[in-house]
């Protein structure tokens, strides 16, 4: 469960990225956050992951009031989250296996367990045969799927994806969305920031729209612009 109550976010530069945001996301939901560039989509995700802290208002994630999460507890808080980015953000001097196993290494899993889980995650995204390759040797779509495998390998409660299909062609984008749906079906709460409206609509999930930092549509209401 994620709940935003009267959340404001003003960056040090003075730009107001979020204004009086109220939002409730149930556990196990799959939700799209849409809106123009600069509307505040990334900011919303960053606040959930405690990459930034809200200027005002209350955010509750998995029962935890984020205001009360102390700086040195942030790493442990983040271990319940998986991230996916538009630009993949893989480590290009490491193999696919090393990239995918990073969250497990961080969480202190044993080597055998790491291998097993990383293989399972790569199998899930259909890249088990590329396990020893370097990311550079993969296509953009494959790199994105390595990113997805890395985001789910430690079995997070939340999956946050910021424009995950921005660099992919429609067919690959659709596949990626379907992949997210599979994770959602096994209980992961999925938040996807995207401006690819056509595809989003076809997914038939809840959509919220941000405009200049304000929530435009109410929960559950399909978007109409």
């Amino acid at each position: 469960m994620i709940r935003f109550t009267n959340v404001y976010m003003t960056y040090p530069g003075g730009s107001e990225a979020l204004k009086n945001l109220n939002l409730h996301i149930d556990s196990g939901e799959m939700i799209y956050i849409t809106g123009r560039s600069g509307a505040g989509k990334s900011t919303l995700l960053k606040l959930i992951a405690l990459i930034d802290r809200a200027t005002r208002g209350q955010i509750i994630v998995n029962g935890q009031n984020l205001e009360r999460v102390r700086h040195n507890r942030i790493p442990y808080f983040r271990r319940q989250i998986g991230f996916i980015f538009q630009d993949h953000r893989l480590l290009y001097d490491r193999t696919v296996f090393d990239n995918v196993s990073l969250p497990l290494v961080i969480a202190g899993y044993r080597h055998k367990e790491i291998r097993k889980r990383a293989q399972a995650a790569l199998d899930k995204v259909g890249l088990l045969n590329k396990i020893n390759n370097y990311p550079m040797a993969l296509s953009s779509g494959e790199q994105q799927r390595v990113g997805v495998a890395r985001a789910v390998v430690h079995r997070p409660i939340y999956l946050l994806a910021d424009e995950p299909t921005g660099n992919l062609d429609p067919a690959l984008s659709w596949e990626t969305m379907k992949l997210f749906e599979q994770f959602n079906q096994v209980g992961v709460t999925v938040l996807i920031a995207s401006h690819d409206l056509d595809m989003i609509k076809r997914m038939k999930k809840r959509i919220i729209t941000l405009k200049k930092g304000r929530l435009l549509t109410h929960a559950g209401t399909p978007i109409k612009e």
Partner: peptide
């Protein structure tokens, strides 16, 4: 950055 994002402690 990635390590911090995936919960790596200092």
């Amino acid at each position: 950055e990635i390590s911090k994002l995936f919960g790596g402690t200092d």
